[in-house]
Simulated assay, not measured.
Amino acid sequence: MDEAAAALDRAGSALGTHGRRYAEGLLLLLRARVLQAHGEPAATAERALALSTERAAHFFAHRAKALLTCMKPGNGTTRSP
């Protein structure tokens, strides 16, 4: 997890450095998946959904909704979308 989190941190820094924020929802979604694998709550996936929806990044918003569905307690699935 540490390597994945570090890679996502570097990617986030690169987005900020170059002012290209369009992939920020994707980075949040990927971070949410890393956190999900370690049993963390869904707050990051919710942020990914909100940001992607706000920026009309429909594909990332759809993926965040799917991840949130998988993260709901008692849904019977352990697979990430």
Rank of each mutant, 00 (worst) to 15 (best):
L29R: 02
A56L: 11
N75K: 02
A56N: 08
L67R: 02
L8N: 00
G19V: 08
L68S: 04
G76E: 01
G74F: 11
K72D: 08
R10G: 11
A56I: 10
M71S: 01
S80H: 11
D9T: 12
L26Y: 06
A56F: 12
R79S: 15
G39D: 04
P73M: 02
Q36M: 08
A7P: 05
Q36G: 08
A4W: 02
G76Q: 02
M1C: 07
A57R: 05
P81E: 13
N75S: 12
L27K: 01
E54V: 13
D2N: 12
R33S: 10
G39Y: 06
H18E: 12
S13I: 14
K72V: 15
L68W: 01
E46P: 09
L8A: 00
P41D: 01
E54A: 15
T69H: 14
A23Q: 08
G25V: 09
C70V: 15
L8V: 07
R10Q: 10
T53Y: 02
A61H: 05
A50S: 03
S80P: 15
A11L: 08
F59T: 15
L27R: 02
A7I: 11
V34R: 00
A45M: 02
L68H: 00
E46F: 08
A11H: 06
H18I: 15
F59H: 12
A6L: 06
T78F: 13
A5C: 04
H38I: 11
R63H: 10
H62E: 10
S52C: 03
R10N: 14
S80M: 15
G12H: 05
H58M: 08
G19Y: 05
G16W: 04
H58N: 09
S80W: 13
A23M: 12
A48M: 01
A23R: 09
G12M: 06
A57Q: 10
A45C: 06
A61P: 10
G25Y: 10
T77D: 04
G76F: 12
V34W: 04
T78A: 15
E46R: 08
T77G: 09
T69A: 14
A64M: 00
A6Y: 05
T44V: 15
A5L: 12
F59L: 15
L35D: 14
M71E: 05
A48S: 07
R47W: 09
R10S: 13
Y22G: 06
K72A: 15
Y22V: 14
G19M: 07
A45H: 00
M1D: 03
L67K: 01
E3R: 12
T69E: 09
H62V: 13
L67T: 05
A6Q: 06
L15D: 02
E3P: 06
K72C: 08
M1H: 03
